[in-house]
């Protein structure tokens, strides 16, 4: 537990020291949402809004997870020697979960205010927010595992996107489906089956990555 806390503190310090990567992600968000804002003007339907929002969120979480795993080249030897692999994984996972949820909340606020104010009017907002948190957490878990595979490599930048997207696709389709239902204002009863689906897929990838990560980390 102490180790997990120190990993969390280390990641937080890293983000404050080298804030360029964090700010880069924010910049990516704002600029792509502005591009959408200009190109779509007012002709955005709920389904298109949903698709744009999730595409932004997926690449957002890929970038975040990559930042968490790939920016400690020099410190890697200390992490390797001082921390148990499982604790390292849990620490990094928790940090990226928190970070991704914050960033996705920002993403949601921007998309909502600029692109979809009238779209979200009829939405079942609590259902949408919980789908949002669940979906992004599940994706973060899967991308974390894949990024930890890539962390071993010299040319690691493309690893998360190429290896991670096939893993995340079913979760993503369930998420997009349930988010669409939530936007259209359906009740919990309708949304619940796909939420259960999302939960099952996320917990599957969580269990697998916890079992397999020690093998990746040991050299």
């Amino acid at each position: 537990m102490k180790e997990v806390w120190s990993i969390l503190r280390y990641e937080l310090q890293k983000d404050f020291k080298q804030s360029y990567s964090f700010l880069g992600i924010i910049l990516y968000l704002i600029s792509s949402i502005f591009v959408c804002y200009w190109s779509f003007q007012a002709g955005l339907t709920a389904v298109t809004w949903n698709a744009i929002f999730w595409i932004l969120s997926v690449f957002l979480s890929i970038q975040t997870v990559q930042k968490v795993w790939h920016e400690d080249r020099k410190e890697k030897i200390y992490l390797y020697l001082l921390v148990q692999p499982l604790h390292l994984f849990i620490g990094k996972l928790l940090y990226s979960l928190v970070l991704n949820n914050i960033l996705v909340a920002i993403n949601f606020l921007l998309c909502w205010s600029l692109l979809g104010e009238d779209i979200m009017q009829q939405a079942h907002i609590w259902a949408f927010l919980s789908v949002l948190a669940l979906g992004i957490s599940g994706m973060t878990i899967a991308f974390n595992f894949v990024a930890s595979i890539g962390a071993q490599q010299a040319s690691a930048s493309s690893f998360s996107a190429i290896l991670g997207l096939p893993i995340v696709l079913p979760l993503l389709s369930a998420t997009v489906q349930s988010a669409k239902l939530a936007i259209q204002g359906f009740d919990w009863l309708v949304i619940n089956p796909s939420i259960i689906n999302m939960l099952a897929l996320s917990s599957l990838s969580l269990g697998l990555s916890l079992v397999l990560f020690p093998y990746i980390w040991q050299e």
């Binding site: 595979i149 071993q152 493309s158 290896l163 893993i167 599957l204 093998y215 990746i216």
Partner: peptide, 22 residues
């Protein structure tokens, strides 16, 4: 994409287990 023989074998074995389960 993995150049080193040992890490290629290890990482792909791990990914294979993940892929089969999914």
């Amino acid at each position: 994409a993995t150049k080193d023989d040992l890490s290629r074998a290890k990482l792909s074995a791990v990914y294979n287990i993940f892929a089969f389960t999914l």
